[in-house]
Amino acid sequence: MTDTARAAHARQFDLTGRVALITGASRGLGAAMARGLAQAGASVILAGRDAATLEAQAAALHADGLDARISAFDVTDGPAVEAAVKAMGPIDILVHNAGNQHRAPVEETTEEGWYSVMDTHLTALWRLSRLVVPGMKERRRGKVIATGSLASDLGRATITPYASAKGGIKMFIRALAVELGPYNIQANAIGPGWFDTELNRPLLDNPEWLAMVKRRCPAGRYANAEEIAGTTVFLASPASDFVSGQLIFVDGGVTASMS
Score class of each variant (00 low, 15 high):
Phe172Leu: 15
Tyr222Cys: 15
Arg174Asp: 01
Arg35Gly: 02
Val106Met: 08
Thr4Tyr: 00
Thr53Gln: 15
Val133Tyr: 00
Leu122Val: 02
Ala59Thr: 13
Gln39Phe: 02
Val19Arg: 15
Gly230Lys: 13
Thr231Glu: 02
Gln39Cys: 07
Pro202Cys: 06
Val81Asp: 08
Thr158Cys: 02
Gly252Cys: 09
Ala225Asp: 11
Ala189Leu: 08
Arg215Gln: 12
Ile145Gly: 02
Asp119Gln: 10
Glu208Cys: 01
Lys86Ala: 15
Gly135Asp: 14
Ala42Ser: 11
Asn224Lys: 15
Ile145Phe: 00
Ile91Trp: 08
Met171Asn: 12
Ala72Trp: 07
Ala72Asp: 10
Gly167Arg: 01
Ser240Tyr: 06
Gln12Gly: 10
Arg127Glu: 04
Leu94Gln: 06
Ile22Gln: 08
Ala68Tyr: 04
Val133Pro: 00
Val133His: 00
Val243Leu: 13
Ile91Leu: 04
Ser43Glu: 15
Asp241Ala: 06
Ala165Leu: 01
Asn224Ile: 06
Ala38Asp: 05
Leu154Ala: 07
Thr76His: 05
Trp209Glu: 03
Pro202Val: 07
Ala52Gly: 14
Leu61Trp: 12
Met136Gln: 09
Lys143Tyr: 07
Met88His: 06
Val75Glu: 04
Ala256Arg: 11
Glu82Ser: 13
Ala219Glu: 06
Ser26Phe: 05
Ser26Gln: 09
Asn224Tyr: 11
Arg174His: 05
Thr231Ala: 15
Met1Arg: 00
Val144Trp: 07
Leu94Ser: 06
Glu108His: 14
